[in-house]
Amino acid sequence: MATVWIPPQMQNLTGGREQVSVEGATVREIIESLEVVHSGIRERLCKGDRLKPTIAVFVDSEVSPLGLRQKVSSESEINFLPAMSGG
């Protein structure tokens, strides 16, 4: 199962847990699985069929430009972080 690091501001949805392991072959499936266990997570992360524009997904410590479509493995670590950039 993939390991998801829950942002501290969302840990109220996971009963204070900072890591949750769930099944899923894509980021979309991971979020679906999280939603089953911890209702409300999808609404925090997604708008319609996309991640919210202010949120980026890191899979194995790299930002994925594919968002919900990014494939993940059972060993993957997933972080949701603020969307980023530079000057």
Binding site: Q9, M10, P82
Partner: peptide
Amino acid sequence: FGEDTGTKSNIASHTQ
């Protein structure tokens, strides 16, 4: 982080 507090404020966002 994806949640709106609903309180009017000059604080636009909080990152943790």
